[in-house]
Amino acid sequence: MPDPVDLPVRLSVSAEAARNLATATVTQPQWDEITPRWLHLLLPWVDVDGGVYRVNRVRQNSEGVTVDLLTVDDGEPELPTDFIDYEQDPREYHLSTIQTVLRTHTRITDLYSNAIDQLREQVRLTVEAVKEREEHELLNHPKIGLLNTVSPTQRIKTRKGPPSPDDLDELISLVWKKPAFFLTHPKAIAAFGREATRRGVPPPTITLFGSPFLTWRGIPLIPSDKLPIKEGKTSILLLRVGEKQRGVVGLQKAGVAGEIEPGLSVRYMGTNEHSIASHLVTRYFSLAKLGEDALAVLDDVSIGNYHEYVYPTA
């Protein structure tokens, strides 16, 4: 890939490209990189005031006890006295920002918007790119990404490489308080399907958002191509979600100027002396894990294992 400083400056879509869209077709521009982004749909989103979300936790004593309690069978023993203590330095989550400036020539939007609104399509596709980047950051960001915020005790490895039913059961044992969904690369889901089928327990499917999903123990396996694959291996995550469940929640700031949906805004920045109109596209977001046992990860998931099946002949 060329160094960014060597790339030519592109101020707006070319007149030829805009003319083709306006006169040669009546369909919207198709972009193959757009994905369903199930993670965003399945996460509960919390509106954050002031751009900061503080997670206050109860503190345990040196013996791992939160409240000193006494079970009494008879007699009148002296009862313990105690109180619930809190962490004095709770973790704070600050919203991250994804931004870009969309530039369009007014000649393009004026002359070639008869069949399809050129500005609307430029905004739509730019917003799609922002959302794709957001899903990537929710998984891979060094500070808030799910893959990088797992507690060491909640991280395990596969028994033999390919993802087996035993491996997913082990994940469930770590996130057993209302697990919501598995999240992994589509190739890992296919690999699990092969292993489960070989065991004679092909995973059933359920329908969410009008699409079928494989499940295990009733928990859906949600695909995302933003999970990295390195040397034929990837990871499988299991999440509990929601504030009331002390799970994983998405964070955003709603009500910003130019908002087109919660936490996402498009603001007109003016037109320069070259007739280039600029629009600032901004997404404010973050991710918070409210309980250490709300997230677990299965690492070293091999996705390249296949089986040969021998069928009896008549």
Results as ranks from 00 to 15, higher is better:
Asp117Arg: 04
Tyr311Phe: 11
Asp293Leu: 02
Pro4Gly: 00
Gly232Met: 06
Val26Asp: 07
Ser96Asp: 11
Pro223Phe: 04
Gly218Thr: 11
Asp6Cys: 05
Asp68Gln: 14
Lys143Phe: 01
Asn61Ser: 08
Trp31Ala: 07
Thr35Ser: 12
Leu111Cys: 14
Lys131Pro: 01
Tyr268Val: 05
Val150Glu: 00
Leu171Gly: 02
Gly242Ile: 08
Asp117Glu: 11
Glu128His: 07
Pro152Val: 12
Trp176Gln: 09
Thr25Arg: 02
Asp225Cys: 08
Thr149Phe: 02
His185Cys: 03
Arg240Gly: 13
Glu135Asn: 02
Ile84Tyr: 07
Arg59Gly: 02
Asp85Met: 07
Val310Arg: 06
Asp6Gly: 07
Thr109Lys: 08
Glu137Val: 06
Arg283His: 10
Pro228Thr: 11
Asn114Glu: 15
Gly145Asp: 04
Leu237Thr: 09
Asn61Phe: 10
Gly242Met: 03
Gly210Arg: 05
Thr313Arg: 14
Arg159Cys: 08
Tyr53Leu: 00
Glu135Phe: 07
Pro8Tyr: 04
Gln99Gly: 08
Glu76Ala: 13
Glu135Tyr: 04
Ile219Pro: 04
Lys131Ser: 04
Ala294Arg: 03
Asp300Gly: 11
Leu119Val: 12
Pro228Gln: 13
Arg19Tyr: 02
Val13Ala: 11
Leu39Gly: 10
Glu78Tyr: 11
Asp32Arg: 14
Thr207His: 09
Glu308Met: 12
Gly255Lys: 00
Gln154Trp: 04
Arg57Phe: 13
Asp68Val: 12
Arg103Ile: 15
Glu128Gln: 13
Leu174Trp: 08
Ser265Pro: 08
Asp3Phe: 12
Ala314Trp: 12
Pro212Thr: 01
Val175Leu: 14
Thr197Gln: 05
Arg267Lys: 15
Asp293His: 04
Arg199Gln: 08
Val248Gly: 02
His40Pro: 00
Val249Ile: 13
Phe213His: 10
Gly193Trp: 06
Leu251Asn: 05
Leu111Ala: 12
Gln245Arg: 01
Thr205Arg: 12
Arg246Glu: 12
Gly200Asp: 03
Val65Lys: 09
Arg133Asp: 03
Leu238His: 05
Val297Cys: 14
Val67Gly: 06
Ala190Cys: 00
Ile206Pro: 08
Leu70Ile: 15
Gln88Ile: 01
Thr313Glu: 12
Asn61His: 10
Thr234Tyr: 11
Leu79Trp: 11
Glu121Ile: 00
Pro44Asn: 09
Glu231Ala: 10
Tyr311Cys: 07
Lys289Ser: 04
Gly263Thr: 01
Pro90Ser: 06
Arg124Asn: 14
Arg10Asp: 00
Glu87His: 01
Pro152His: 09
Ala188Trp: 06
Ala277Val: 13
Ser14Pro: 00
Glu231Phe: 03
Gly247Leu: 02
Thr149Ser: 09
Phe182Asp: 04
Tyr268Arg: 10
Arg103His: 15
Arg103Gln: 15
Glu87Asp: 13
Arg199Trp: 05
Gln154Glu: 01
Leu174Asp: 00
Lys233Tyr: 03
Asp68Gly: 05
Pro312Gly: 15
Val48Asn: 01
Glu292Cys: 07
Thr71Arg: 14
Leu174Lys: 14
Gly218Leu: 12
